[in-house]
Every structure is written in C-alpha cells, then in structure tokens.
Computed example of a mutant assay.
Amino acid sequence: MSNTAGVCGLGSRGSEPVPMGSMTLYPVPESVSRARRWFRKLTDRHKLSCSVDDCVLMVSELVTNAILYGEAEEPWRVRVEWWRVGSALRVDVHSPGLPSHVRMREARTEDVHGRGLGMVDMLSDSWTAGPSPFGGTMVSFVVDDAWL
C-alpha cells in the first residue's frame, strides 16, 4: 500500500478508465452517510469481487476529509467519481482547497481524528492526492482485481 504519484496511471495497467458513476454532495456531515449508501447502491449492479465494505469505508473517510478540510470562499460541493480501470476500481473524491494539505498522520490513541488516510493506505492497493481537474484537491484510491 502506498501513496502513488500520478492518478492517470493508478491501477490502469494500460487500460483506459471507464466511468461507472458519480455523486455530488453538500459539504455537511449528513453527506458522509449518503455517500456510503449511494456508493453501495450504485456499485451493486457491477458485482464487485473486492470487499464492498472496505470500499464504502474508504469512501466514507475521504468524503469526511473533504468536508472537514475543503476550503472555498463561495458555496461548494464534494464530488465522488468511480471508474473501472481494467480489473481495478478507482474512486476519486474532489473538494476545494490545496492538494499540499493532504497528508497521512500518525494518530495517538487518544486522538479523535487522524486515522482516515491510514485506513485508506491499509485497505487500498494504492492511493494518491493531487490537484483536481475541477480545481482544488482530488484524493483517489485504487483496489486492484475488483473484478475477476
């Protein structure tokens, strides 16, 4: 598991990304549970062979981070997109703010926050953070062999 630079090649193995779905969410706490429900519902028909529960947890963590750390002077939204790239699943979460602010922390036992990217790092095959094509930040994770 590693933070892999360059979203284009993430999990691609030479395959073009095929869009599978997306959602746009308000930057409010209720959007985290909405993201979990909708991701599960909208990916169900695609018969993923990876752990959907792990993917839902990672989506939840990235949407939470986007809501907590997104910064904009005007109204904004969190955008979640998921792609099939060969046999891999790639999920992108877009929010406003600076990509340089994304970092994995070492949370202490008593810390309430600070474990999200660590979980994404453990559960995904790779992840990355960088500029979003919409402006702001995009954090992505890839699960290899999501389809057998």
Rank of each mutant, 00 (worst) to 15 (best):
W38G: 10
A107M: 04
R37D: 08
D111K: 04
W83Y: 15
E81Q: 13
W127E: 08
A5R: 11
K41E: 15
H113D: 07
H46S: 14
S12L: 06
A129P: 06
A72H: 08
F141A: 10
T128Y: 00
L148P: 09
R36S: 12
G6Y: 05
L10T: 01
Y26G: 01
T137F: 03
R105H: 11
S2W: 08
V142P: 02
N3D: 10
H46M: 09
M119R: 11
M138S: 14
S22N: 11
A72S: 15
V93H: 00
V78I: 13
W82C: 09
T43K: 06
D111F: 02
W38A: 14
I67W: 01
W127T: 13
P29R: 10
V91E: 04
P29W: 07
V56N: 14
V143I: 15
C50P: 07
W83V: 13
R108Y: 06
L10E: 03
S51R: 07
G135S: 01
G136H: 02
G86C: 03
R103D: 07
G97A: 03
R36V: 01
V93D: 00
V93W: 00
P75M: 02
M1A: 14
P17Q: 05
V120H: 04
G14N: 07
L42K: 15
L98T: 04
S140G: 06
T24W: 00
V28D: 06
W127Y: 12
M119T: 14
V112Y: 08
S100I: 09
D53T: 14
G21N: 08
L42G: 09
G97M: 06
G114R: 05
G114W: 02
M20A: 02
G116L: 04
M1N: 01
S31M: 05
C55K: 12
V142S: 07
D144S: 12
M104R: 13
V7K: 06
R77K: 13
G97W: 03
E110D: 10
W83I: 04
L42T: 07
D53K: 13
Y26L: 14
E73T: 12
L62M: 15
R77S: 14
L62F: 12
I67C: 04
W83P: 11
A146D: 05
L62E: 11
T128L: 01
D145I: 01
R90W: 05
R90E: 09
H46C: 10
E30A: 15
V18T: 11
G116C: 04
M58R: 07
L42Q: 15
T128R: 02
R40P: 02
W83H: 15
R108F: 04
G86R: 08
V78G: 01
N65H: 05
R45S: 13
D54F: 13
G21P: 08
